[in-house]
């Protein structure tokens, strides 16, 4: 009977230790970092015109994805850069530099030739790209060719 009581005490103690250990570990670990893989956002795409006005498109979809071949790729879906532009295009901006700090991703890039309409599109070379992905929002500003462009959107 004593053996049984001893064994039960050990078992309970062990259980408590394990429980305390789990709680301790949870409290001690740093905030988990979500892997930077892919995400989608929807928001406002704005292009500054040379006359000082701004051309705005709502509900523009933007995705990012980390790929083996082109690194961090930022994709703007069906955007146009002027109300007079008769087509809307998909534009991929590859090899964007990114840093992940406690879940906040900081984006930067310069002199990036985007892909659009099936190939490289030097006319819209990206300069001064900066942006963040934080708390479910994506903010990007850049020059696309000669046009200053911003995007503000939230996770879909």
């Amino acid at each position: 009977m004593k053996h049984l009581q001893f064994f039960a005490t050990l078992l309970i103690a062990g259980t408590m230790f394990t429980a305390c250990g789990s709680e301790d570990k949870k409290n001690d670990d740093p905030k988990p970092v979500e892997a930077v893989t892919a995400d989608s956002f929807q928001g406002t795409f704005s292009v500054g015109n040379s006359d000082g006005t701004t051309y705005t498109q709502e509900n523009v979809n933007v995705t990012y994805a980390v790929t083996d071949t082109a690194g961090f790729v930022l994709t703007f879906k069906q955007v146009s850069f002027s109300p007079k532009m008769p087509v809307k295009i998909d534009m991929d901006i590859p090899n964007v530099t990114y840093e992940n700090e406690n879940g906040k991703i900081t984006l930067s890039g310069n002199e990036i030739i985007p892909y659009a309409m099936g190939g490289e599109f030097p006319k819209y070379t990206i300069t001064n790209l900066s942006g963040t992905v934080n708390d479910g929002t994506l903010s990007v500003s850049m020059n696309c060719g000669s046009s200053p462009v911003t995007f503000e959107g939230s996770k879909k």
Partner: peptide, 9 residues
């Protein structure tokens, strides 16, 4: 679609 182009309007 392959080109990622649509014609506005």
């Amino acid at each position: 679609s392959d080109l990622g182009v649509s014609f506005a309007g």
